[in-house]
């Protein structure tokens, strides 16, 4: 089985801080990581390869620094890595991003494409299903378990209050839930090879068969017109020196004041 995993390099949003004066994001010094849902997708792909054979190739669209997550993926066990990068792709919203990725993926062989459910910087969950649409293949989102039955995949698809067992024909695209597995660590030999012996293939605008009107800022129907720090409500009373008994009394009092019981 030939599997392509789409991975994104993201800032670790847990460590993003706001500049209290300017109200802007402080991104300096915030480490970049492989998006967690994508990493789970990669782990799922590597597990499928171990069970059924084949290859696992990884694709990332982003600036040249995204090379790092592709090397990490190879150090975990991915076979080939492709970095889709060009200034012409800049300013893309999810539709233009998925169109660009589709143009890149069309040049590769695949039975299965796995993306993460969503990236922690944008949280949109849109690029996976959009990519499947451009490729005219079925997609199953929120996959939490994947098995193979001949040319058909059997996927456990999560919803809020239930799951569906879904049979889907390959080629197809799945979006992986971060909770579905615990991704393996890179191996020391894998890290050595990923950095010293292996190549990341660069894919640029010139390599893709896609119209200018469909990529980058031009190909993006949506546009950010304003961004602003989130305003939080003001803090209330803080009691820092109460004994447990007093603390319980304090809460009781407040609950009564508000007629909670």
């Amino acid at each position: 089985m030939k599997i392509i995993v789409c991975i994104k390099q993201v800032p670790n949003t847990n460590e993003v801080k706001l500049d209290p004066i300017k109200g802007t994001l402080i991104r300096d010094g915030v480490p970049s990581i492989m998006n967690p849902d994508d990493k789970a997708g990669l782990e799922a792909a590597l597990t499928l390869k171990e069970r059924y054979g084949g290859e696992v190739n990884v694709v990332s669209m982003g600036p040249p620094q995204a090379d790092a997550v592709l090397r990490e993926a190879m150090a975990m066990g991915a076979d080939k890595a492709y970095l889709v990068t060009d200034r012409a792709f800049g300013g893309a919203d999810t539709l233009a991003t998925s169109t660009t990725l589709a143009a890149a993926v069309k040049k590769m062989e695949y039975d299965l494409i796995i993306t993460g459910r969503q990236a922690i910087d944008g949280d949109t969950a849109q690029v996976g299903p959009q990519l499947a649409e451009h490729l005219n293949i079925p997609n199953v989102s929120y996959a939490e378990k994947i098995d193979l039955d001949g040319k058909t995949l059997v996927v456990q698809r999560q919803y809020e209050d239930r799951y569906h067992t879904v049979r889907v024909q390959m080629p197809c695209l799945l979006t992986a839930l971060g909770e579905m597995n615990k991704p393996r660590y890179m191996t020391p030999g894998g890290i050595f090879d990923a950095y010293r012996k292996r190549e990341v293939t660069i894919v640029t605008r010139a390599d893709l068969d896609v119209e200018d009107e469909k990529i980058g800022l031009k190909g993006s129907p949506t546009r950010v017109v304003q961004s602003f720090p989130k305003s939080l409500k003001a803090a209330g009373v803080k009691e820092a020196a109460l004994e447990p008994e007093e603390a319980a009394n304090f809460i009781m009092e407040k609950l009564k004041e508000k007629f909670i019981f």
């Binding site: 949003t13 994001l25 910087d121 304003q226 961004s227 989130k230």
Partner: peptide, 8 residues
């Protein structure tokens, strides 16, 4: 966006 750090 950005994990709820900013609004767009």
């Amino acid at each position: 966006a950005f994990g709820g750090n900013i609004m767009a």
